[in-house]
Amino acid sequence: MIINHPILGPRDSAEFTYIGDAALIDRPDWQAEDALAQFVDYGYLRDNPAGKHKELWFHEQGDRSFLVVTRDTTTHEISGVELARDVARKRGRRK
């Protein structure tokens, strides 16, 4: 698979480490009333869809950025790549 890195251009997926579902960006609030239940969900439960999947790839053998890759799990076709930083900022995170 070739991942089209937003800054570095097309890169071999072997340079990356797969992290998992991009929902992992949204870490629960540890002070919430139901923080335990939220963290069990966050840590252990996954949507695991057959089809379009937004997922985190870490460019470990490259610029060490985290990317959000949109990939079809039934064909391995990649339809979108963004910096995870940009995705998190769009959701209102400061850093």
Binding site: G20, D21, L45, R46, D47, N48, A50
Partner: peptide, 18 residues
Amino acid sequence: GSSSRLMSKADMRLPIES
């Protein structure tokens, strides 16, 4: 192999990735 796909029909999310 397809557990998540099937159990999603019963509104379950599983501690599983395929």
